[in-house]
């Protein structure tokens, strides 16, 4: 009984955290390249509706997931063309992208409201998933959950250990210097932005295919904005962003379970995930683990290659 509720609660925490993790790890790469894309919410919704519609139409969740990533990337391409090629203001364009994403996803999804779709199958890892409690929690989730952790690990490795990752960081710190060293600033920013869009799209697909397997307008309910905040609080580092996402998801679920047991006003409970995440991530940033905490120096600044 107790084992069972631990499994239920832990699985709920994982579900609540995974969409945030997808969107935040993607946005982290984008911001490390010096681009600030505030359209995460819109790209998540595009991923959610496309993933859902594709799965319903083709019957294949794998195609649905791929389509969701492609749709998120497609929307981010609009952003990239406007801000990187046409030099539009990144903040304004990102906000517009969110509004556009909300609208276009509602339009595309209007025929799919109320349709059922089977939830993503759980990928039970042989032997390990039969362990008590930790088996179903750690080794009995669906593929997207594992993918989100793999993408976080991949981002950390990419940024720290690869040559290309170093170039990406250099571009984010000083596009001018990177350009004068011969690095392809605009091209790399394009690729980073597309990756961020695809990751946000996956986060949306997780919502509409696994978390709550359905499509409804605006179903992300502000998760894109929380992902953006997590990138800042995680000081642009993948593992800290993962910690932030799981902390936020964890407190969100635990406060629901605490209601009726601990007697506090309902409003206090709803503040808890935000308070806890801010407190812990601020403590990490202020503590002895402090590293370089500032934003990439060229974040949000347009770059025009000198002629």
């Amino acid at each position: 009984m107790i084992d069972e509720s631990i499994v239920h609660i832990s699985s709920a925490v994982i579900s609540a955290s995974t969409p945030l993790l997808f969107a935040a790890t993607g946005e982290l790469i984008v911001e490390r390249s010096g681009v600030l894309n505030l359209g995460v919410e819109g790209m998540m919704l595009m991923g959610a509706v496309t993933g859902f519609a594709t799965t319903v139409t083709t019957g294949s969740p794998v195609l649905g997931i791929l389509a969701a990533a492609a749709a998120g990337a497609a929307l981010s391409l609009v952003f990239a063309v406007l801000t990187l090629t046409l030099m539009a203001n990144q903040v304004a364009t990102g906000l517009a992208l969110t509004i556009f994403g909300i609208g276009i996803s509602a339009l595309l999804g209007s025929g799919f409201v109320g349709q059922p779709v089977p939830a993503l199958p759980k990928l039970d890892i042989p032997v390990l998933s039969t362990l008590p409690v930790i088996g179903p929690v750690l080794f009995g989730q669906d593929g997207l959950v594992y993918l989100s952790v793999v993408m976080t690990a991949g981002s950390a490795w990419f940024l720290k250990r690869t040559h290309t990752g170093m170039k990406l960081r250099a571009i984010g710190e000083s596009a001018q210097s990177a350009h004068s060293l011969g690095l392809p600033v605009i091209r790399m920013r394009y690729l980073a932005t597309l990756y961020g869009g695809a990751a946000a799209g996956l986060g949306g697909a997780f919502l509409s295919l696994s978390y709550t397997p359905m499509w409804m307008e605006g179903m992300t309910s502000g998760r894109g904005w929380i992902a953006l905040a997590l990138v800042v609080f995680g000081s642009w580092r993948p593992w800290r962003v993962l910690a932030g996402a799981y902390l936020f998801g964890g407190v969100t679920i635990l406060q629901l379970h605490a209601q009726g047991v601990v007697h506090l006003p309902a409003q206090v409970f709803s503040m808890l995930p935000y308070l806890a995440t801010i407190a812990v991530l601020t403590a990490i940033s202020a503590g002895p683990w402090r590293g370089r905490l500032t934003a990439p120096a060229d974040l949000g600044k347009p770059f025009r290659p000198p002629v």
Partner: peptide
């Protein structure tokens, strides 16, 4: 009647989490 407040009119994810918690209770 066990009540869980989600402090929103509309958030499918949070509503589903609350529903799961209620069934667990």
């Amino acid at each position: 009647t066990k009540v869980i407040w989600v402090n929103t009119w509309y958030d499918p994810g949070k509503e589903s989490d609350a529903a799961k918690a209620l069934i667990d209770k």
